[in-house]
Amino acid sequence: MNRRRLRPDEEELWRKVTDKTERLHPEKPFHPDDFVTTPPQQQRTRASFEVTPAPIKSQKYKPSTSINLSPSIVDQVAAQPVQMDRKAFTQMKRGKLKPEGKLDLHGMTTDRAHPALTRFILSAQSQGKRLVLVVTGKGKNRDDDGPIPVRFGVLRHQVPQWLSMPPLSSVVMQVSQANVRHGGGGAYYVYLRRNR
């Protein structure tokens, strides 16, 4: 098998590696060409190509804190189509409609918050209420950066998902982030369907 010759920078790197190691078989002669596996230029097929990486010295490494490709919960809630009366929706977003009930989930774990939310929404709908406020809080920064990433404001992210799943999905007509006078980013307006 024909093999290509090492470039000078590759040879230098290989020599640095071999200088720091001991040979398993010192009796065998050493040739740097014995360790190259790329075929020569003339034997390459049309589909193959060679990519030469940029020198490491020219690359600037900037550590990133985290990369989240999914849209934020605020964007997801805002992107939902309006299913209620447009005029009432506008008034609700401006904080002009007063919520008929309020559930505060501050300090609860997800295990306690999910059943409490389900009870509250189903109870409010059975009482004929149309607009309720669910306060989740904005979440707090965690001091420990462990190996497993934890979302900022767990309940804030979970509540819209819970509201879109059965049994609540059949009761909830619209979910929207609350106006600043009712909690802003730490609360949601939940507009309920009429009880039939």
Rank of each mutant, 00 (worst) to 15 (best):
R86S: 15
E10M: 03
P167I: 05
Q43P: 03
S169M: 06
G101L: 08
D9R: 12
M173P: 01
Q91D: 11
T18D: 07
Q42C: 02
Q42F: 06
G95F: 04
R4V: 03
H114A: 15
R86Y: 11
A178F: 13
R119T: 10
Q80G: 10
E100M: 05
V175R: 10
V51M: 13
S70R: 10
A78C: 12
L105V: 06
R3D: 03
P53A: 12
E10L: 00
P71Y: 01
D145K: 09
A79N: 09
L103H: 02
L24G: 01
E12Q: 15
G95A: 08
Q158D: 12
A187R: 05
K93C: 13
L155P: 02
R112L: 11
P71G: 04
Q43K: 11
D75F: 05
I56H: 02
E12H: 13
Q125K: 11
E22Q: 02
D144P: 13
K87T: 15
R151S: 10
T136N: 01
R44M: 10
T37Y: 06
L103T: 08
V17Q: 04
K87L: 15
A187F: 06
M108I: 00
E50H: 05
V172D: 03
Q59R: 07
F120T: 01
R130T: 14
N68C: 09
K140F: 07
L117Q: 02
K60T: 00
E10Y: 04
D143S: 14
M165T: 12
L155N: 01
P167C: 07
R156F: 04
R112I: 03
V171N: 01
N195K: 11
R151Q: 11
R196A: 14
R44K: 07
A178P: 12
P55Q: 11
T110N: 14
F35A: 04
T18M: 10
H106F: 11
K62D: 09
A78S: 14
G101K: 00
R112C: 00
E22L: 00
D145M: 08
E50D: 12
L131E: 06
Q76L: 15
P55V: 05
T118K: 05
N2D: 14
K62T: 12
D111P: 01
H157F: 00
P115S: 06
W162S: 02
W14Y: 09
R151D: 11
D34K: 04
M92D: 11
V180K: 15
R156Y: 09
M92C: 13
Q76C: 13
A78P: 08
V180T: 09
Q161R: 15
D143M: 12
A187I: 08
Y188A: 06
